[in-house]
């Protein structure tokens, strides 16, 4: 008869009443109104962030499948075009990003131990490493523009920066163009993620400065860390796939 056949009022006190009456509890200031407790809130944040990262994997995955298909279609052009990239700069950036991942992990650890100085120092270092990465990237891109290795009308028009392979096989130049298009698309989308990440870290730094992150509640710090590590992982794959394809040919700068 009554609809309460399906559900009965809850007896457990900690679920309490909803809505405005929720103020009766001594809630943590970081607990949003629609959650019952910090753990439910943290689980939601963790699952949400990971679902977002799954989405990111598929987002970059679209670029990777394009890379795989064209590399499979034009293996020689890809290897020789790759050999025109600056491996020392790529390796430097790999080192910078790995270091930033460590400082990021330590910043999150500072959240878990409640050490505000650790959080602040490590976040600053993370931001510095992130910006250093972007600066190196800038010089790398600038070099490609100078060498006419940017896909466009003047692509590979400077003989000083076209390897003997492409001089002997001009028919492979359009395929090298596709390689460089993918190089710019993949590292460009990655760099865009770095810029977003640096902005995110600046915001997290300001929150950390206010002392918001305590051991029982530092979700925002931890979730930003997950994002940062993910961007690092993308680079871990980009570096060998893009920079090192033709490294064994030698003759690189």
């Amino acid at each position: 008869m009554s609809t309460s056949a399906h559900a009965a009022p809850v007896a457990a006190p900690h679920h309490g009443a909803h809505g405005d009456s929720g103020h009766g509890h001594a809630h943590h200031p970081g607990l949003a109104h629609h959650f019952d407790d910090l753990e439910q809130q943290k689980d939601s944040a963790v699952y949400g962030m990971w679902a977002f990262l799954v989405q990111e994997v598929m987002f970059f995955g679209g670029l990777f499948i394009a890379y795989i298909v064209y590399r499979n279609l034009y293996p020689d052009a890809f290897a020789h075009a790759s050999n025109l990239l600056n491996v020392p700069l790529g390796a430097t950036n790999t080192a910078i990003l790995l270091a930033s991942s460590l400082t990021m992990a330590l910043a999150v650890r500072g959240g878990a131990t409640g050490s505000k100085p650790t959080q602040l120092i490590m976040l600053v270092l993370t931001i510095v490493f992130g910006l250093a990465f972007l600066v190196v990237k800038y010089f790398e891109y600038a070099e490609k523009f100078e060498h006419h290795l940017v896909p466009g009308p003047t692509f590979m028009s400077d003989p000083a920066h076209v390897s003997p392979f492409f001089q002997a096989h001009p028919e492979e130049i359009p395929h090298a163009k596709i390689f460089f298009f993918l190089y710019f698309a993949m590292t460009g989308v990655h760099a865009a993620h770095m810029i977003v990440g640096a902005g995110l870290m600046a915001w997290i730094f300001l929150r950390a400065k206010k002392g918001e992150f305590v051991p029982e509640h530092h979700d925002a710090l931890e979730m930003s860390g997950l994002y940062w590590h993910f961007v690092d992982i993308v680079w871990i794959f980009l570096f060998p796939m893009i920079y090192l394809l033709g490294y064994h040919f030698g003759g690189h700068h």
């Binding site: 009965a8 809850v10 405005d20």
Partner: peptide, 20 residues
């Protein structure tokens, strides 16, 4: 169907406990 029609802003007066 066990909350008010139309529902209150926070959906339920009391958190339902499901038994079925």
């Amino acid at each position: 169907w066990e909350t008010q029609t139309p529902p209150i802003p926070h959906n339920f007066e009391v958190t339902p406990r499901v038994t079925q």
